[in-house]
Amino acid sequence: MDTRALRYFQVVAEYGSYSRGAEWLRISQPAVSRQIRRLEEELGCELFRRNGHGVTLTEAGRVLLERSQAAFRTLDQARAEIRGGAQGPTGAVSIAVPPAAGRWLVPPLAEQMGKQLPGVQLRVLGGFSGTIDEWLVRGRVDLALVHDPLPRRGFSITPLAEEEVCLVGLPGAPGLARRHVRPADVLRLPLVLPGRPNASRRLLDAWLAAEGGAPPPRVEADDHSVLRALLRAGAGYTLLTRGGFAQEARRGELAGVPFRPRVCWTLALVAASQPADPDVIMPVARLLRRVVGDSVRKGWPARALAGTALP
């Protein structure tokens, strides 16, 4: 397959539109269409399905996207190794992070990698637990930070930090009137939550199992920025770690109160038990553990954990 056509295909898949993909690529839409049509002819199947707002991937398109992303990652790693010129490991590492923890951990991780692992390129993907879990299983990322991950065969889990969970909404909102809330209090509140599977949804289900399960949220939002915009608009309440709304709290945009009894999520590092490129991936994993401890000492509202030895 032509690598240029695959690149065009990936961009259109990301933007969900031939026109927006062509705009990002800075080439004409017909040129993009021709390349993707050649791919479809070569494979003997359609890769996109058109709708009123753009295009979506067919099942064949989803398979090609996953495989081509993995292939390009391998090519990028080979390019970095061949170029050489750097001390230590060379290659690329992809890491998925939840939005809140990413705010605190990714900037210092990038800074330290520049000093200690200059030959390693860092790629960061942000998402909620369910999305991150899917990326891990499909091999799209090498490392992932996940809240309370479920055990999965073929992956190692290393606890890194413990973060207290709060009920979060607008300052002065009735649900935040007391100094703390109880799990049962959320039954009476309009909730804005990510879709299942997600750490907050699992937590609510566990709390309210005796009550017949958690009520459906008023709004489900799997986009981090959309969820926060809904909170600022007064659409309801959500569950966030203290670090997850610290910046908005300082600006007076959001407020939160803790639960009693105290509720915490464990932030863990998840990696394949047998990484694809351990000489590159594992130094980044070890560095990330040190970054967690440094970030806690510098103000991240979490408690660092000793964890277990990395594989």
Rank of each mutant, 00 (worst) to 15 (best):
G299C: 12
D279R: 15
I27Q: 14
I95N: 07
A271R: 15
R232F: 04
R303L: 03
F155W: 13
T56G: 13
F259Q: 08
N198R: 02
D2W: 09
L122T: 06
T308R: 05
I27S: 04
A173G: 06
P89S: 01
F259D: 10
E164V: 08
G52C: 07
T241W: 00
A101C: 08
F259M: 11
G256P: 05
Q69Y: 10
V270G: 03
I95L: 12
L193Q: 01
A309E: 15
Y18N: 06
P98D: 13
S94V: 07
G212T: 08
K298A: 14
R228T: 07
L105H: 07
D279I: 05
V192M: 01
R38P: 06
P183V: 08
A92N: 00
D222G: 15
A101W: 00
A92V: 08
R49V: 09
L47S: 08
G130E: 11
V257A: 06
I132T: 14
G84M: 05
R103T: 12
R250T: 13
A306F: 02
L75M: 13
R251G: 12
P30I: 03
L122N: 12
S156T: 14
R218I: 10
A255Q: 11
L43S: 13
A144C: 06
R152Y: 02
A233W: 00
V284M: 11
V97R: 03
W104K: 02
T308D: 04
R196W: 03
G126Y: 10
G252W: 03
R83I: 13
R303G: 00
G293L: 02
W265C: 03
E111V: 14
Q247M: 01
G84H: 05
S17D: 09
H53I: 03
P149D: 07
E134G: 12
L208R: 11
L305S: 03
S273T: 15
E23D: 13
R196Y: 01
L269V: 13
P89V: 00
Y237H: 06
A92L: 12
E40C: 10
H224Q: 08
A92P: 00
K115S: 15
W207E: 12
R201E: 11
G212M: 13
P278M: 08
G21Q: 09
D277Y: 14
E41A: 15
S129E: 14
R178T: 02
L187G: 02
R178P: 00
S295V: 04
G256Q: 08
V141A: 06
A210N: 12
A184P: 01
S28N: 11
A96D: 07
T238V: 01
G234D: 05
L122G: 03
E211A: 14
P171N: 11
P30M: 04
L47Y: 14
Q121N: 05
A229L: 04
W104C: 06
